[in-house]
Design a protein around this nucleic acid. Sequence first.
DNA 1: ACCTTTGTTTCGTTCAGTGAAAAGATGTTT
DNA 2: AAACATCTTTTCACTGAACGAAACAAAGGT
Lengths: 257, 257
Amino acid sequence: MNYTILAVERALLLLEALAEMPDSGVSELAGRTGYTKTLVFRLLFTLEERGFVTKDPVRRTYSLSWRAMLLGDQARRQSRLISAADPQMDELHRQTGCNVSVQIRDGLHSVVVALRRAGQDQRIYAEVGRRGPLHAGGGPKVLLAFAPEDIRQAVLSSELARYTPNTMIDPARLDAALVMIRRDGWVMSEGELDHSTCSVAIPIYDSNSEVAAALAVTGKTDLLPPGERGHVLDLLREAGTKITRLVGAHGSGVPKI
Amino acid sequence: MNYTILAVERALLLLEALAEMPDSGVSELAGRTGYTKTLVFRLLFTLEERGFVTKDPVRRTYSLSWRAMLLGDQARRQSRLISAADPQMDELHRQTGCNVSVQIRDGLHSVVVALRRAGQDQRIYAEVGRRGPLHAGGGPKVLLAFAPEDIRQAVLSSELARYTPNTMIDPARLDAALVMIRRDGWVMSEGELDHSTCSVAIPIYDSNSEVAAALAVTGKTDLLPPGERGHVLDLLREAGTKITRLVGAHGSGVPKI
DNA sequence: ACCTTTGTTTCGTTCAGTGAAAAGATGTTT
DNA sequence: AAACATCTTTTCACTGAACGAAACAAAGGT
């Protein structure tokens, strides 16, 4: 059955559009979302009234406001995955000096939901909320490896974008890699999304033994030499076990993001 | 004119209800919001479909999900006030070792929108998202002092809750205090919300010279002795000037929260 | 001063959103 | 294990809330 409330769905999509293009006006957003100006105007009116959006009356542009911010804070605080991962990410960050991230799968994309950034000496292109593909990079490949059959098929049979010479764009090779990931429970990837970057990643399970997320350590290739990676993997697995224990602990058997 | 879209308004209120009582079911939320169970069910259905809410099918409870979280992250990143205040708050936190907070006014309440927590030795009851009164505490009193006339009247003529013996519950005394705050541009409060806590607070202005927020340093009374407070005020004003410069800088003349 | 673009308001129509109530699940008590 | 209580899900029929089109107003640019 479909119980979707259209107006609500539209409001949520508009909020996300606004998140991607802050300080835009009614027409701009109407263009982006495909809604009529009237509708966008009214949605924004309602969102503003409730404090989720602010209007700049001089420039007549809208942006997300503090209620959206605080809702997000609450969501983060209440998330089992995040609260379980937070201390372990700090630990990993301290131990490795690399970027540490937690990613989840959203449809055919990976999304970074938590991140510890390495120092500015090894600036890696990563941000909370960033979407990426599923076929390139350590975290994404873990998510893909353990994704439901139909998702894996969809990705494998789609055009696999090439980011670097190392990106796996051959479905057969990629599928073989996924088999290995499922067998081993970890993956090391090198320069698949970015030339000089490599990562080690493992899955985080919920209590149903479903993969709820991927935990990854990412660093500049020269600062994370092959010899180091085995050690990083050990640290990662230790952290992963602790997180999985907490995430699955509730016993409901459902991934709580 | 009223262009409110009812369904959207309801969805937003439901989201906030869910933020306050995570892991609740349809009936529970219906009770809380006053909506019918059918409506709550459908709103949740829509919110879940869009990834703002997760359902635990075993326990049949709902919670905020990662899209709400990421929307909040974006809102925080895009907020001029927050991005201007963040480094200054870090600095103040380092310099004073006390709690540092940014608060804004929402109707007749104060809300903490950013916070740096002091070490566990002086745990102070403070959390991002927490709502408080406008008549007690440093930050709140600053917000009240510079609030529009009608808001001030509403608060002054309402029953002023007493939290400690130090809470100002006499409207005349409170009003006199507000006059002083407007004259001086700062306030020191002691044990108004909590016996052993005191704070120093100043306003943050937008480019219209409207008060957009309050910046406060809060500490245990014994760790922030009267002799120290003058120095804290100096640091606070320095930080405040820098924030105000950035917040107002855009020139649109509108408080961007 | 004219034109273009963007935001706001009005208005009439229709179907989306709604509540009531029935049906189905689930867990609990006797 | 049957009856009960409680919660969620589905159905259904009605009505007014949500909607688009188009007129109007307000900025900004030329």
